[in-house]
Computed example of a mutant assay.
Amino acid sequence: MEAVNVPLADTPVVTFWEGEIVDAKNYTFFTGKWEASPEDDIRHWSKFPSFTPLLSQIETDGGKSVDLSNYAYIFMVLHHLTFHRWKEQYFANVGVDCGLTIAGFYYVCFSCSDGSISGYYYDPNSSPFQKLELKCTNEKDSGFTFSSYELQ
Rank of each mutant, 00 (worst) to 15 (best):
E2S: 13
A3V: 13
A3M: 09
V6Y: 00
A9V: 05
A9K: 02
D10H: 14
T11G: 06
T11Y: 05
V14A: 10
F16Y: 14
F16V: 14
W17T: 15
W17K: 12
E18F: 03
G19Y: 08
V22T: 06
Y27F: 11
T28H: 08
T28E: 07
T28V: 07
F29V: 07
F30S: 12
F30M: 09
T31N: 06
T31I: 04
E35M: 14
S37V: 04
S37M: 07
E39N: 05
E39Q: 08
D40G: 00
D40I: 02
D40A: 03
I42N: 02
I42D: 00
R43F: 06
H44N: 14
H44Q: 14
S46A: 09
P53M: 00
S56M: 04
E59N: 10
T60F: 13
D61W: 05
D61T: 04
G63A: 07
K64D: 11
K64C: 10
V66I: 13
D67V: 01
L68V: 00
L68M: 08
S69M: 08
S69D: 06
N70V: 08
A72G: 10
A72S: 15
F75I: 03
F75R: 02
M76N: 04
V77M: 11
V77Q: 08
H79K: 08
H80D: 15
T82Y: 10
H84I: 12
H84G: 07
R85A: 02
K87N: 13
E88Y: 03
A92W: 03
A92M: 12
N93F: 01
V94K: 01
G95V: 01
V96A: 13
D97V: 03
D97Y: 05
D97I: 03
C98K: 00
C98Q: 02
L100Y: 02
T101M: 09
T101F: 07
I102D: 07
A103K: 13
F105C: 01
Y107S: 01
Y107E: 04
Y107F: 06
C109V: 14
F110E: 01
F110R: 01
S111G: 04
C112H: 06
C112T: 04
D114G: 02
D114E: 05
S118M: 05
G119R: 00
Y120R: 03
D123F: 01
P124G: 07
S126D: 13
S126Q: 14
S126P: 09
P128F: 08
F129L: 11
F129Y: 15
F129W: 12
K131F: 07
K131T: 13
L132F: 10
E133C: 12
E133M: 15
L134N: 10
L134K: 11
K135E: 02
C136N: 12
C136K: 12
K140H: 12
S142G: 06
S142E: 14
G143H: 08
F144I: 03
T145F: 00
F146T: 02
S147V: 14
S148R: 12
S148L: 04
Y149Q: 14
Y149H: 15
L151D: 06
